[in-house]
Design a protein around this nucleic acid. Structure first.
Length: 554
DNA sequence: TGATTGTTGAGCCA
DNA sequence: TGGCTCAACAATCA
């Protein structure tokens, strides 16, 4: 029987280096259906703001355009995968479902349920590695229950595995068949949700789920307005799409010295136009850039480089290894990786504003409020009104651009958690989830555990200074002048500590501290001293997230 | 058991 | 700019 293939696009919005896509085409299908489904889980249960929606829909539209040129299209439905696929299998007489493996806990659970539904419908499933350099399943399998928590351990586990070369983009894809939309509309359950964690972004009515096929059966990606968002709020300057991803990679690779001698800790978090790092993370996250394409372009260049190259983990390939390491850790821990409760590698620390759970271990919605003081502190941090210009610049950059340099992420995460405010990393990770265009559950939660000394990293006595650290890279306060324009006219001497500027300097700069820009919300040094003492106490208890489950079972 | 290592601290000194 | 010390964690290895 000739194959009738359904290709499920998820985090693989590209045609180059697309092993799953090519696997489907290898079956020489008589019909080929590229499908995306707009999963309510990501819309109502995951924090996500307008910038990431913009980036995602731009990337989707580009794939649609490319498929259209080949006489096909990206068929965008608006339904939960488990509701949609059985109907598509039946209506389209599908023989094979093909997709790229996604190593996130939700994705694994979702894909397992789809595999069962496919089996019932006599559909063969092909899930192919392509989002990661290594097959993370195989790495974790090898560990026999021991969770990977360092790059060294990851490298050791991956020692005998090889990283495949990227594949060429297909020149052609077969056509789809009659879509039978009327039957599909009749049979697929309409999306309903009783809660929405993204209410704060919605300015209008969400109409995206009014029909499973989109307005006028168009099967187009939803506009921001259909999601109830205001496109004016999507202020990121990072455009989505595979072409842009490859253009940016080309441009970066052209600078052989920068590529071959890249050392992450030495790149300045103050640079923004262009940034000191590649800023390819959003493209890798949505698969607009194939991670193996990136890896091999860099490694080939480094191997032919005339001069001394930088080494792992600081160099570019090393950065990708950290991403893989977090995927492996996440896969080892499963669902609790994004939280403290039940997370056996994560320290229990008496943070303020920790997640709250009900008797069944489900997150309580709406979230119970903490003390007024703590809630206000979190809000100040979230919106860049802490009174520390470096923190505020970075947080405002995050909100505006959906991106922040890795070392700035270190500073603001340290400030929120073990450094100054002593607020749970879970809350910080949630804000990053909301605003980052490159948000990934493994890297984000992993890095927050790292920075808060909850896992991966433990030297809690090493702290970032909100004045000292940025000065090391840039004494002129470039990033502050860009994102905290109130302080634009301040002399370099006071740019990271404007509260120390004498009154006449403040007046001349046109910004009075306490009136036009906030006073620092805490005494940095004093708060840090208290935090360190508390960390020491908490560390001595040697409690991890799984202990919270045991205690409850008693 | 003790030494070494761990991508990315600050403060001080020369 | 480079090296030492501050106070001192966890994992690994000999």
């Amino acid at each position: 029987m000739p194959a009738r293939v359904l290709h499920w696009f998820r985090t693989d919005l590209r045609l180059h280096d697309a092993p799953a896509l090519l696997k489907g085409l290898e079956l020489k299908p008589e019909v080929f259906f590229p499908v995306w489904t707009w999963d309510p889980y990501f819309n109502f249960e995951c924090p996500v703001g307008p910038n990431r929606y913009k980036f995602l829909t731009e990337s989707m539209k580009e794939i649609d355009k490319k498929l259209s040129k080949m006489g096909n299209k990206l068929h965008v439905f608006r339904a939960a995968p488990a509701d949609l696929f059985p109907v598509l299998f039946k209506q389209w007489n599908i023989t094979h479902l093909v997709y790229e493996k996604d190593p996130a806990p939700y994705a694994i659970e979702r894909d397992e349920s789809i595999k069962k539904l496919a089996k019932d419908a006599n559909v063969e499933v092909l899930d192919i590695t392509g989002h990661t350099l290594y097959d993370i399943d195989a790495i974790v399998e090898k560990q026999k229950g021991k969770t990977i928590t360092s790059a060294t351990a990851f490298k050791a586990a991956a020692k005998d595995m090889k990283i495949e070369r990227p594949l060429q983009a297909p020149k052609d894809v077969p056509k789809a068949d009659d879509l039978k939309l009327d039957a599909i509309k009749k049979e697929v359950k309409k999306v309903k949700s009783d809660h929405d964690v993204n209410e704060e972004h919605r300015k209008g009515k969400m109409t995206a789920y009014d029909s499973v096929t989109g307005p006028k059966d168009s099967l187009e990606p939803p506009s921001l307005e259909e999601l109830g968002l205001d496109s004016e709020d999507a202020t990121t300057q990072i455009p989505g799409g595979e072409d842009e991803a490859l253009r940016r990679l080309d441009k970066w690779i052209k600078d052989k010295d920068a590529t071959a001698t890249f050392r992450k800790p030495q790149t300045s978090p103050s640079e923004y136009d262009p940034p000191a790092t590649t800023q390819l993370s959003p493209y890798i996250k949505f698969g607009a850039l194939g991670v193996r394409e990136f890896y091999w372009r860099v490694v080939d260049l480094m191997e032919n480089y005339d001069g001394e190259t930088s080494s792992e983990p600081e160099n570019l390939p090393g950065q990708l290894i950290f991403r893989e390491m977090y995927f492996a850790a996440q896969l080892g821990i499963g669902k609790p990786f994004g939280q403290i409760r039940g997370n056996k590698i994560c320290r229990v620390i008496d943070w303020k504003l920790c997640n709250a759970y009900d008797e069944d271990g489900e997150k309580i919605f709406p979230r119970p409020k903490g003390s007024k003081e703590d809630e206000e502190a979190l809000e100040k941090w979230k919106h860049g009104n802490t009174g520390f210009p470096w923190v505020d610049a970075a947080m405002r950059q995050l909100k505006q651009e959906g991106w922040m340099h890795h070392l700035a992420r270190h500073c603001v995460a340290g400030f929120l958690t073990r450094g100054q405010l002593y607020i749970s990393w879970e809350r910080g990770a949630e804000v990053f989830d909301r605003y980052l265009v490159d948000q990934d559950p493994a890297s984000n939660a992993g890095n927050w555990m790292w920075l808060s000394c909850s896992a991966f990293f433990h030297q809690y006595y090493r702290n970032y200074g909100m004045t000292t650290f940025p000065s090391k890279y840039d004494k002129t306060g470039k990033l502050v002048r860009k994102y905290v324009p109130e302080l634009k006219e301040y002399p370099d001497k006071y740019i990271y500590k404007p509260w120390e500027a004498p009154e006449d300097v403040q007046k001349k700069a046109g910004c009075k501290i306490g009136k036009d820009y906030p006073e620092p919300m805490i005494d940095e040094k004093e708060a840090n001293k208290e935090c360190m003492a508390r960390m020491k106490e908490q560390y001595a208890k040697k409690l991890y997230g799984d202990s919270l489950l045991k205690r409850k079972a008693k």
